[in-house]
């Protein structure tokens, strides 16, 4: 079987994210890294393979600018066998629906038995790419899965939804977005990091995967993100840096006491 893992390059969490006021879009400058939530999806694929399922290949797939190859290198160092990079200026500014469509077209060429992805991208935070991709591939899908067992062509998935934990059985091929509680991702070995650039990497443009250019890009997205404005300002809270804990605790108690909370 073949597992495709969707990965994304995102601004490093340590770097301040910001919006470019002239375009209303995310400013994607600065340090970048593999979206940390996607490392759980790669790890889930590795555990399926190591668990004895007949996995022939794990393929990392991304859509993004040329710099996104670094996210693919990282994915490969974590265990993917090869990667596919969808990169085309025509895709810039695509909304969730357009991104999901473009990724689905890229996946069609791979014909995977299972598509795994992260619960959210650290920058876009839409939580929904999986549902869009699944629809375009006519595959069943589930988000926030924290336990995944594969037996033949049947997946047993557990996830927390709004009323508690649900267990769902799904026939592959399927698209599963995994929650961050599903596993503890491994660290790549030095050898894997060094070898990552030598693994096959296929760079494709919209035409190579039959993406209809009139359905992607900022100008063709159904949702138009117009402007960014500041939220209503709220009085900042009091911040205490704990240096002398007895003193800190004294201040907390006084603060609570003043507000009659004790």
């Amino acid at each position: 079987m073949k597992i495709c893992v969707l990965v994304k390059e995102v601004p490093d969490a340590a770097v301040q994210k910001r919006i470019d006021p002239s375009t209303g879009r995310m400013d994607r400058g600065g340090e970048k890294n593999l979206n940390p939530y996607d490392t759980h999806a790669i790890e889930a694929a590795m555990q399926i393979k190591e668990g004895g399922a007949p996995v022939d290949e794990i393929v990392a797939v991304t859509m993004g600018p040329s710099s996104a190859v670094r996210a693919l290198h990282k994915a490969v160092s974590l265990g993917a066998d090869r990667s596919v990079h969808l990169s085309d200026d025509a895709l810039a500014g695509s909304d969730v629906a357009a991104t999901g469509y473009a990724l689905a077209q890229t996946l069609k060429r791979e014909n995977p038995d299972l598509v795994l992805l992260g619960q959210q991208s650290d920058d876009g935070e839409c939580y929904t790419i999986g549902a869009v991709v699944a629809e375009h591939l006519s595959m069943p899908s589930l988000t926030q899965v924290i336990k995944l067992d594969l037996a033949g062509e049947e997946l047993t998935c557990e996830r927390q939804a709004e009323y508690g934990y649900d267990t769902v059985k799904i026939q592959t091929p399927a698209v599963i977005s995994v929650g961050d509680a599903i596993n503890e991702p491994r660290y790549p070995s030095l050898k894997a990091i060094m070898g990552a650039k030598k693994k096959p990497l296929d760079t494709v443009a919209t035409g190579d995967v039959e993406i209809d250019a009139s359905k992607v890009g900022g100008d063709n997205s159904g949702a138009q993100w117009t402007s960014a404005k500041a939220p209503p300002s709220k009085a900042a809270g009091l911040i205490i840096e704990d240096e002398d804990t007895d003193e800190t605790v004294g201040k907390i108690v006084a603060w609570l006491d003043e507000r009659k909370l004790l």
């Binding site: 629906a97 899908s141 993100w225």
Partner: peptide
């Protein structure tokens, strides 16, 4: 979230 996104894909609709 799941239904809204899936519906957007099915209908070719914008979603936020």
């Amino acid at each position: 979230f799941e239904v809204g996104a899936g519906l957007a894909a099915r209908l070719g609709a914008g979603v936020a």
